[in-house]
Amino acid sequence: MVLEILQAGFMQRALVAGIAVALICSVVGLFLVLRRHSLFGDALSHMAFGGIAVGMFTQVYPLWTALIVSILGALGMTKLRQSTKISPDASVAVLLSSGLALGIVLIGLSGGFSVDLFSFLFGSILLVSFDDTAMILALAAGILAVMALLYRKLMYIAFNEEQAKVSGLAVNMLNYAFIVVASVTVIASIRLVGILLISSLIVIPNIAAMMLGKSFKKTIIISAAISVASVITGIFASYFANLPPGGTIVLTTIFMLLGIMGAKYAARKAKTVQTAVAENTSEPGR
């Protein structure tokens, strides 16, 4: 049964696009989580929602307008945060509400919600076309190449931005570059899980990986493995159970996070019991 399904073109495209998106979300998401910008992905997805509404209103391919609007909005938010005393979480809130408001107004002017809009909101990975897959692969290759090139510098900034400035790194330019990469990552992920769930795929696998307490490189590898496993499992589960793919993928990542939390708790309890037993047996007269 599984081999027959894998021979279907739509399933092949879904798996290829899904794995590519899983990799870029885990890599970019780790830097967002380390910089305490976990909600930034959510804000970018709302800006993408506004950009898609712009595309539908102007009759332009929505993903291109979403990309432009997301990048401009993210760069504007970064500039606002750097030039004013607005806190990062407040600037994220401004970006989030701006994109949502823009989208709602333009959707109203366009005549309301449509089937296409719902596919962008909730994802339609099983309906990804060959052109969509090619675009996702191209964007993913570019994102991974940039992240590999800037890896050490971005890691330095993520752990200590002030020290990075003192050391002579062009922190502002690197922040702008990372913001653009994060925006492109969100756009590439829309077909997989939809606008409403993108931030979950960016954040949850990285939280799960960080709980394992490994080194930075190992955390990236573990996060990517969790993300890829969640996508593959979610795609197959959604197909066999006739469930929405985006929600199924995100629920799979949540189950994996809960599993890791349970395993960590069980390990701590076992260690506590072993310590107590060792102390009791070492006491004199016993």
Results as ranks from 00 to 15, higher is better:
V27E: 06
G29S: 11
L32G: 06
L32D: 05
R35Q: 13
R35T: 12
H37T: 14
L39V: 02
F40G: 00
D42N: 13
D42Y: 12
L44R: 03
S45M: 15
H46M: 13
A48P: 02
G51T: 09
A53G: 01
A53F: 07
V54F: 09
F57P: 07
P62A: 07
P62H: 06
P62Y: 10
W64T: 12
A66W: 06
A66Y: 01
S70I: 02
I71H: 07
G76K: 11
G76A: 06
M77L: 13
T78Y: 09
K79F: 14
L80D: 00
L80W: 08
R81K: 14
T84S: 15
P88N: 14
P88V: 12
A90F: 13
S91Y: 11
V92P: 03
A93H: 11
V94C: 07
L96R: 00
S98M: 06
G99E: 07
G99Q: 04
L100Q: 05
A101V: 06
A101N: 00
L102H: 04
G103N: 04
I104Q: 02
I104C: 05
V105F: 14
G108S: 05
L109D: 00
S110P: 07
F113D: 03
F113T: 08
V115F: 15
D116T: 07
L117E: 02
F120C: 01
F120T: 06
F120Q: 05
L121Y: 04
F122H: 09
G123M: 15
G123T: 15
I125C: 04
I125A: 04
V128L: 00
S129T: 09
F130V: 02
F130A: 13
D131A: 12
D131Y: 02
D131H: 11
D132W: 01
T133S: 14
A134I: 09
A134M: 14
L137Q: 03
L139H: 06
A140P: 03
G142P: 00
G142T: 02
A148I: 02
A148V: 05
L150K: 04
R152N: 10
K153T: 09
Y156N: 01
I157R: 00
Q163K: 10
A164H: 02
K165T: 13
K165Y: 13
V166N: 00
S167G: 01
V171E: 10
N172W: 13
N172Y: 11
